[in-house]
């Protein structure tokens, strides 16, 4: 590339953008201003207020208002075993639920990718849980499905010796995960199905002619093809599942004990039951910081997922 080396190093590649007057700059920004102001008022101002509260001792149920107490709220947050447990629990529940949605969703997608009579109906039925509002779903699970005395599940399992099982009391952790998976598996299935259907047919035919069995074809060709789809599904699924609140609020209230207290529910409890504004603000700030760290990793992965197609 001798030609390039000879070129003056400072030569601009293209026409330089024309300098704009201040007036011109503002006339371009002005239409965006209302949206910007709105965003600042509803997101940044509350966040600043929250930071301010996080340095205050302030209990709703105690007279005397608020007073500055330094970093003691933060000290409490980092030493509060409930907070740390909530983080661990959120992570484990999310990881288990996401893995299950991926495995079940992929299996169902592979099933739905083949032609069989009634495929349209089956597909619609499988997608339905995704269309049910989380709160409504939680109520249905808690009552008609899981009720120890009248629940459908116990009725169906009775022949197998299950007797008036109180699922939400005795197996709360697992049951909540089951409901989370039930709700999000269709989403994962749809993404994987889109991936499967975008796989060119002649490549699969070439594999058949090359002597590959169905399983080898899946492992050698389909899984690599699905990789970006799986990554996207895991990413979005994680974002949704980490914020699960409705099901926990309505089915277990974080219990029994703190068995199902995840981070969102922990924060909610701190404000609404302990009336500890300062403490929950500090926990909230820590959560936001953690979220930002995780989210920026996730966003970087997003970028990679979407460049994946071009990069290979």
């Amino acid at each position: 590339m001798a030609v390039l080396e000879q070129a003056p190093p400072t030569a601009p590649a293209g026409p330089r953008p024309r300098a704009m007057s201040a007036r011109e700059k503002w006339s371009r920004r002005l239409p965006l201003l209302p949206a910007l102001l709105y965003t600042i008022i509803v997101t940044q101002v509350p966040f600043l207020v929250m930071i301010w509260y996080s340095f205050q001792s302030y209990y709703w149920n105690e007279p005397g208002g608020s007073w500055f107490n330094g970093v003691s709220n933060y000290a409490h947050v980092f030493t509060d075993p409930d907070f740390l447990n909530a983080i661990v629990r959120t992570v484990t529940m999310t990881v288990i639920a996401v893995l299950l949605t991926v495995i079940i969703g992929t299996a169902l997608a592979v099933l739905l990718d083949r032609k069989f009579p009634g495929r349209g109906v089956v597909r619609t039925l499988i997608i339905t849980p995704f269309l049910v509002m989380p709160a409504a779903a939680a109520l249905i699970w808690q009552g008609p499905m899981l009720d120890p005395n009248f629940g459908l599940l116990n009725y169906l399992l009775a022949p197998f010796g299950v007797n008036h099982e109180a699922w939400l009391s005795n197996h709360a952790y697992g049951t909540v995960i089951v409901v989370m998976v039930w709700q999000w598996m269709p989403f994962m299935m749809l993404i994987v199905l889109a991936g499967l259907q975008s796989q060119p047919g002649d490549v699969l035919e070439a594999a058949k002619v090359d002597g590959a069995s169905a399983w080898s074809t899946f492992r050698e060709l389909t899984v690599p093809h699905l990789r970006p789809y799986l990554e996207l599904g895991i990413l979005l699924g994680t974002i949704y599942l980490v914020t699960t609140f409705d099901q926990i609020r309505l089915m277990t209230q974080g219990g029994p004990g703190t068995q199902t207290t995840t981070l969102p529910y922990y924060l909610y409890e701190k404000v609404n039951y302990a009336f500890d504004i300062g403490g929950s603000a500090a926990a909230g700030v820590v959560t936001v910081v953690l979220t930002i760290i995780v989210a920026s990793f996730a966003l970087r992965m997003f970028a990679r997922v979407f460049q994946f197609e071009e990069a290979r």
């Binding site: 490549v203 035919e205 070439a206 058949k208 002619v209 002597g211 050698e220 060709l221 290979r312």
Partner: peptide, 19 residues
Amino acid sequence: PPKDRDIAMVFQNYALYPG
């Protein structure tokens, strides 16, 4: 089935394995 026929095929659009 094709895999047991011991044949090799060249497809019009080549159908190479992209990955």
